[in-house]
Design a protein around this nucleic acid. Structure first.
Lengths: 182, 182
DNA sequence: ACACGAAGGTTGCCACATCAACTATTGAAT
DNA sequence: ATTCAATAGTTGATGTGGCAACCTTCGTGT
C-alpha cells in the first residue's frame, strides 16, 4: 500500500541550479492544483458519459447552442465558448450531427459565407435531459464543499489564471476586480 | 468575431424544473473553473511536449521516480502519486521504457512479487533537463499572477475539491485546516 | 490440500484529441 | 486584374487514455 512516508507527490524535481524554484507553499498549491486538474475533469466526464453518453465538451456545445439566439452559433464562436480548437470542435460537431442533435448550415450573411451549428429539437431534448444530473454533480464535486467566500476566491483565482492560459477569453468575461489590492 | 453579447459561456442550461440550480455567483465560478480545467492542462502539456517531448503525466512519473528512494516505485504507488489509472500508468511506463528512461523490474520482497518501475540514468538526465523550463512555466501560468494569500486559498480549495474527486488521495496529504471556520 | 476471492498488473480495442495539411473565401496591396 | 496574406473550417493520420477482459499471485476458509 501507498504510505504517507512515500509521498513525493509534487511533480517537480528539486534542482538548486535552477534559480527560481517553488517555495513549500507553492509546491503544496501546485500539487493540489495539478491533482484537481487530473481528477475533476475525469469525474465530470464520467458522470456525463454514464448518464447521458456525452463528454463535457459535447455537453458544453449543446448547452451553448441551447442558450444562443435561434439555437445557432457560428463554429468559430462555438469554439471560443467551449474553449476548444477548431479541429476538436469540428470533430465533435460531426459526432453530434451523427446523433441528430446538431446540424450544420451555411450562413448567407452579407459578409461572407460561414458555417453555423444549429441545435435540433432532439438535441434540445437531449441536453435538457442531461442538465439536471450534471448540475447535481457540479454541486456535489465543487460547491457543496466550499463556503460562499471560497466560491468567490475561486472565481477570482480562476479569472486570474485565465489571463495566462486563455487571454483572448478573459476579454469576454467581466472580471470582478481580478486581484484584490495587495 | 465572437462578441461579448453572444456570451452564453456557462456550460449549464437553465431549467427551472430542476430544483437545485446554480446561483449567479456559482455559475461564474463554474465557468471560470471549467475553462481553467480545459486550458491550463493544455498549456502545461504544450510546454513540456514542445521543450522535452513529454506530457505532464509522463513528467510526473519521471519526477516521482527521481525523488523516490532508489529511484524506484511500485506501479501501484506510482499510479496513486501521478493520480492515474493502473492502465494509463502501464501504457505510459511502456512508452517511457521505449525511450530507455524507465525500466520495469520484479521485486522479490518477502510479501509477494510486484512490479517496480526504476528510473534509468538516461531518465534522470531527461527529467533534470526538463524540470527548469517546466517550473518556469508553472510560475508563469499560475504563481506570477497570484498573491501569497491567493496561493493559500487555492491550496485549501484544491484540497477540499479532492475530498470529492479523489478521497483516497486526500489521506496522503496533510490538510492545512481544510475549511476555515465559517 | 483445494477452492475461492481479492488485489496487482497488463493487454487489446475503441473513442477522442492533436497536429499538420488542405480547401475556400475575403480583403488588401500593387 | 493578380497576387498575397489572413481567416474559417475540414480532414486524415497519429497518439494517448479509458474500459473491460484477462492472467497471476496471494491469502483465507474449509
Amino acid at each position: 500500500m501507498f504510505k504517507v512516508s512515500d509521498r513525493v507527490f509534487c511533480s517537480v524535481v528539486s534542482d538548486p541550479t535552477s534559480a527560481p524554484w517553488l517555495s513549500d507553499d507553492e509546491q503544496r498549491a501546485w500539487m493540489a492544483l495539478t491533482t484537481v486538474l487530473t481528477t475533476l475533469p475525469a469525474a465530470i466526464d464520467a458522470q456525463l458519459k454514464r448518464d447521458s453518453g456525452l463528454n463535457f465538451f459535447e455537453y458544453t456545445i449543446l448547452s451553448s447552442l441551447a442558450q444562443a439566439p435561434g439555437r445557432a452559433l457560428r463554429m468559430n464562436s462555438l469554439a471560443h465558448l467551449a474553449a476548444g480548437s477548431p479541429s476538436r470542435l469540428s470533430h465533435a460537431v460531426s459526432r453530434l450531427e451523427g446523433h441528430g442533435w446538431v446540424a450544420r448550415r451555411n450562413t448567407e450573411s452579407p459578409e461572407g459565407r460561414w458555417v453555423e451549428a444549429v441545435l435540433t429539437d432532439a438535441g434540445a431534448t437531449a441536453v435538457a435531459a442531461a442538465a439536471p444530473a450534471h448540475v447535481r454533480e457540479a454541486r456535489r464535486l465543487v460547491f457543496d464543499g466550499l463556503t460562499a467566500e471560497q466560491v468567490e476566491q475561486l472565481t477570482r483565482i480562476g479569472y486570474q489564471l485565465l489571463r495566462a492560459t486563455a487571454p483572448h477569453l478573459t476579454a469576454c468575461m467581466e472580471v470582478p476586480g481580478a486581484r484584490p489590492p495587495t
